[in-house]
Nucleic acid binder design. Structure first.
Lengths: 242, 242
DNA sequence: CGGGAATGCGGCATATGTTAGGCATAGCAT
DNA sequence: ATGCTATGCCTAACATATGCCGCATTCCCG
């Protein structure tokens, strides 16, 4: 997340907390997304690029700690835990699990903002050495995208040069096949921005990408347009490290 | 974070707190040094390599906040503030100054330990000189970088001279393959500077390095450009002491 | 105090991405 | 079916980022 405005995901089952906090953070120049459950949070994490998660521990359904553990393990985003429990042992558990910070309710929004900034400042710094490697290669309809090399190979084994933007867009699609992605989501996933009023840049990126990977760009087979909704990747994606 | 024991400096004017805490941390596999004033702390910082400072705000003589500010500015070591004041505004001030965390007295030693560990874990931002280099040699795509000798060997076993800047840049990449590094991060990693407004020095270093290690510098295969993001090393890195 | 290498700077050429405007097309109502 | 409107697509103009050359400056080592 090397961008100006950070994208914060707020996870809490209380609607008022979610909305108050979201409003406060937005007012302070951050983008926000809210989720009322761990499941919704996972979905949001998959479908947008989140820079930091503010996470309530006590929630019905999947526990906040469980989600926190998952986030830390997969190194997806730094986490600030939020909880009503003020007891030492609980605080310790959260930190030991690997949360980046911990705030107890009721909290001062200004303090939370300060902590968010503090954590982001650290997270923005140089990534750890030798980070975990995720999926290496994604295959679809005879094509192969080598994510490590940022290289696309066509069905005849020839390398097709992709620009950075095209690569990121294709990657966003391949990671979410058969899902309708709005322009907003795509823009967020590819460049971490939010949609401008007359923003046509995604249309153009899609158009350019189609020209490179579609047999007949006029009748797209892989990236289909969803009228009024966005785009969907309809190819069959297989992932593997082989 | 170093896998060996971290060195913690405890700064507090209360003798009992210093000693209790020092004993507790030592028991938990950390090295400790204590200081009873800001002045003594500065001396300790000068004379030994400190990984983290636990700092009392309220002290006679130079204020803890003042020392904290200095530490943050000079980026010497991460700081955890310690204080009797539990009020929000004070906590916020500490964080806004740039402290890495904040604990109020009376505190649970176990919580403090957890916070120390948390801060150390993410304090990888600034390369400390004492960062142990774990591996002696890094191999990639037929090349071999001998970090001890600061020597690069090409696939035909011929030594290729690298300037120190090129060596550090290559090392930064090899330690973080597949990670997109911004110019700012690269500059930080190679020379500890921060990015100027029209700073193109990294571009030049990358360009020079490419000319030495890329088969075809016009179409880079090892160091790829991420438009709007920075650069990423896409080669396959193996490490070993052999 | 030289002299050569290394590094940084300015600038221009190129690559990449974004914005604008007009045309095409899908959806919808009549 | 017909016509209206919203949405998408295409091309071209514009804006921004990067590549890299040549020169100035700094650093290093004797």
């Amino acid at each position: 997340m090397s961008h100006s405005t950070a994208h914060i995901l707020i996870v809490d089952d209380h609607r008022d907390i979610r909305e108050t906090l979201a409003r406060y953070l937005t007012k302070n120049n951050m983008r926000t997304t809210t989720a009322e459950s761990a499941a919704a949070a996972r979905k949001a994490l998959k479908n947008s690029s989140i820079d930091l998660v503010v996470l309530d521990i006590m929630m019905p359904g999947e526990d906040g700690l469980s989600l926190c553990r998952h986030l830390v393990e997969t190194n997806q985003a730094p986490v600030i835990l939020l909880t009503a429990m003020a007891e030492d042992t609980d605080r310790v558990v959260g930190l030991e699990i690997g949360a980046d910070d911990y705030v107890t309710k009721p909290f001062n929004p200004r303090e939370l903002l300060a902590r968010i900034r503090a954590v982001l400042r650290r997270a923005t710094s140089v990534p750890r050495e030798r980070d975990p490697i995720e999926t290496e290669k994604l295959a679809f309809n005879g094509w192969l995208l080598d994510t490590a090399r940022r290289e696309l190979i066509d069905p005849e084994e020839v390398s097709v040069p992709l620009s950075s933007g095209e690569f990121q867009l294709l990657l966003a699609f391949l990671k979410r096949p058969r899902v309708v992605l709005s322009r907003e989501q795509l823009l967020d996933l590819t460049s971490g921005r939010s949609l401008g009023v007359f923003d046509r840049s995604i249309d153009n990126q899609v158009s350019r990408l189609r020209r490179k990977i579609e047999p007949d760009p006029k009748n797209p087979e892989l990236i289909k347009t969803v009228w009024g909704g966005g785009y969907t990747f309809t190819g069959e994606v297989k992932e593997g490290t082989a």
